[in-house]
């Protein structure tokens, strides 16, 4: 009976939109820099899922190629972002991300 339900592109697209929203809200409500950064990864993934779904729907290979770039960008961002985090935490050891005055002013 579950199999009788038809899986359409909209299922994926709505799921991706929900994941994107969760990531965006998470980034805004969390204070821990590492977790905020994970939320960005969630958002990028939601965008990737959207691209792949559209690629399938439009029968266009372009959408899949784009995801490839997103993955590279995400990897580079992670490398640099974590390096900044390590540099800052090394200087104020024992501090939580709360001490980094993110989003002030």
């Amino acid at each position: 009976m579950i199999a009788a339900l038809e899986l359409t592109a909209n299922h994926y697209l709505v799921l991706a939109a929900v994941l994107f929203t969760i990531g965006a809200v998470g980034l805004l409500i969390r204070r821990n820099v590492l977790v905020m950064f994970m939320c960005v990864e969630l958002m990028l993934n939601a965008a990737n899922l959207t691209f792949v779904t559209f690629a399938r729907e439009l029968d266009d290979v372009g959408g899949q190629a784009i995801v490839f770039f997103t993955l590279v960008v995400a990897a580079a961002e992670v490398a640099v972002g974590l390096a900044i985090i390590v540099a800052i935490f090394r200087r104020r050891r024992g501090a939580t991300a709360d001490d980094v005055h993110l989003l002030k002013g």
Binding site: L13, F20, G23, A24, L27, V33, M36, F37, V40, M43, L44, A46, A47, T50, F51, T53, F54, E57, L58, G62, G63, I66, T70, V73, E77, V80, G81, I84, I85, A87, I88, R91, R92, V100, H101, L102, L103
Partner: peptide, 30 residues
């Protein structure tokens, strides 16, 4: 430390904005 805080703040908000941009591109693509 102000420089490093600037870096991390710019980084988090920059990554946030590029994720938003990417999702926007995805929707336009669709």
């Amino acid at each position: 430390l102000a420089s490093q805080e600037a870096g991390i703040k710019y980084f988090v908000l920059g990554a946030f904005s590029s994720a938003i941009l990417l999702y926007g591109i995805a929707l336009v693509y669709g």
